[in-house]
Amino acid sequence: MTAAAPLRLAPGERSVGRELAETWAARDLLYTFADRDIRLRYRQTVLGVVWVVLQPLIAAGIFTFVFGTVAHLSSDGKPYMVFAFGALTGWNFFSGILTRASGCLVGNANLVSRVFFPRLILPLSVIPAALLDFIVALGMFAALLVVYGVAPTAALVTLPFWMLLLGAGALGAGLVAAALMVRYRDVQYVLPVAVQLLLYASPVAYAASRVPDNWRALYYLNPLVAAIEGLRWSLLGTEPPSGGAVAWSVAAAALAMITGVMVFRRMERGFADVI
């Protein structure tokens, strides 16, 4: 038996430190949730794995046709298919985490109202599934490089940095959305629209260099611009983003994470009472 100090439950008796320690102690649960989600996704749909591969291929194919073939936009000298697919791997990682994290509380309402565990585990547990999708897509991407005869560059070593940037931004936004969704159910309808808009406001289907000069300042306010440009640079050696733009992107991701955790913790208190 432990002689440790008792756990005190009282109004307002919660600290970031205690919660982080509890979240760490419950890391097995993160693994279990991720394992459950991945298994279910691949078990329930026949297309499971095929879909993960097909979805970005189809999307990249459409972008190639619309923006490359019809609109004749430049793709920094790379084959359009490879150019679009590269950015899509990062974009799907971002939108995958954001979308899944936003629904994690409502989707697990049964659990949240019936058993205690550190709530942060739920949004965190969506990361492995998104990462798995990304790895599968990366394999596809490597195959495309071979098909189109494009060689990667030394910039590839920076890939984890861009992933971290995208992941942190997505998780931060996802935490806010998840907490809001508990109280306001319309968030789930607004979010997909917002994500769709964000896709076209980011250099996924086209190169940031194609944006007219007088729109540049406004365009770069979207922190995703530098992150996606950077990711594509690391994968293909296209034009890298400017240092200033990257700094803004890092600041925005950090801000999103801090806001996300704060909002989530603030709303967490009432989750079980509202859901």
Partner: peptide, 27 residues
């Protein structure tokens, strides 16, 4: 006691790990 929700007033001290079986087959 099982920490699903917080008290509005007062305090609870728990000495040791709590295992709550509030509903069979939660999760």
């Amino acid at each position: 006691l099982s920490r699903i929700t917080e008290p509005t007033a007062g305090e609870i001290l728990l000495y040791g790990r709590v295992g709550a079986l509030l509903e069979v087959g939660t999760g």
